[in-house]
Design a protein around this nucleic acid. Structure first.
Lengths: 208, 208
DNA sequence: GCTATTCTGTCACTGACTGACAACTCGGCA
DNA sequence: TGCCGAGTTGTCAGTCAGTGACAGAATAGC
């Protein structure tokens, strides 16, 4: 995570901050699941998290964002991976490999991160406002991703490949997780990695 | 446009409704361009359009949607085209062809529809809230598109291809128009069809 | 003409989100 | 240890998007 490799001993402030954010995220997701996004007020989230409503908005620009922390955490992983892309090798396989590793970390919903992601996406499938919020957040992060891919490729600003690659892969990941979450939510069997491979192969088959 | 070929004589009510919607859309775009989306209130849009604020919300669920009518109009075209897909032939070329025809209709920003689209996208490039709104609207329409493609293909609900195809093509179109609008906005030369072909070829090159 | 339907404006209301300010807490330094 | 600058928080007042209810006006069909 850090550039030096050694974590530089988080200060008390940083720990408090992280704890508060985690608290808000946790209660927000809980309340959204119980009562729906629209029926949950920021006031309720704040009270449950033991902070003021103003503080919630200091951590998250929109109330929906409070439930989307797992998405933001993926972003950190993606960013670090993108920096290590090999500009000489084919791009797509590398990005697909990146996704496969990220999804492997979810352990089909068993790991902590995977379980969170499953909860959030089950919610997104039922709540259009959450889907909208996640797309908005994704669009913001996309700029960073495109820049990273462009640099790795040594491409100029006119080259459309970095953007198309980043957007396509984001779509692939989104469709994968969404499909997986929807099936699991409906009580069906679904393996995350398998779903990803199906999606990836379907994408390949389309372009031939 | 119509299924029968003869337009079924719009009633006075329909004409009024269409006129009101058009008025709101027009003044909203104008005001957004002049003062920005955030600085434009629904009250101002309503006053400029000669209606009440309540009426604006009756036509558009969110104020940003008032500027996105061109997007919704594309939807109508896309829907009718999707119904005519040939399930036996390769899917992607047909969808690419569809886009090419739609973009041809824009006449590189010269036609009325093309000019409107250019204005809206220039705005979207500058206004993150508008981008968010357009993505939200696109996500809603996506469901219809996926269903249409699935039926044309005769695929079942488990087949990921309809969704991936629809999403990929939407991305392709979005990147194309966005790139084109951004360049034109920056005073550079840019041909819409040429941009599309570049994007399409870049996409093909990625997947090899 | 009359009536049912649709459209609109007005009003009252909730709740997301923002800016300003004061109080408090933490980190570093003498 | 005490002090100071920076970061964090709560409170308060305010703007404005968006919604539901209701009454009145306009239109469609007869």
């Amino acid at each position: 995570m850090s550039e030096t490799g050694t974590t530089p001993a988080p200060s008390l402030r940083e720990r408090r901050r992280h704890q508060t954010e985690s608290d808000i995220c946790h209660v927000a997701l809980e309340l959204f699941e119980q009562h729906g996004v629209a029926a949950t007020t920021v006031e309720q989230i704040a009270e449950a998290a033991g902070v003021s409503a103003r503080t919630v908005f200091r951590y998250f620009p929109h109330k929906e964002d409070a439930a989307l922390v797992p998405h933001r955490d993926i972003e950190a992983t993606v960013t670090s991976r993108l920096a290590g892309l090999d500009g000489g090798a084919p791009l797509l396989p590398q990005l697909e490999q990146m996704w496969e590793e990220i999804l492997t970390g979810f352990d089909n919903g068993t790991s902590e991160a995977g379980h969170q992601m499953l909860r959030v996406w089950s919610l997104i499938c039922r709540e259009p406002t959450l889907l909208a919020a996640s797309l908005r957040a994704e669009a913001q992060r996309m700029e960073h991703a495109v820049t990273a891919v462009r640099q790795a490729l040594g491409a100029d600003a006119d080259d459309l490949r970095p953007r198309l690659a980043a957007e396509s892969l984001a779509t692939l990941g989104r469709v994968t997780i969404e499909t997986w979450a929807a099936k699991r939510d409906a009580g069906q069997e679904a393996d995350l990695l398998e779903t990803f491979q199906q999606a990836r192969d379907a994408m390949h088959r389309l372009t031939r």
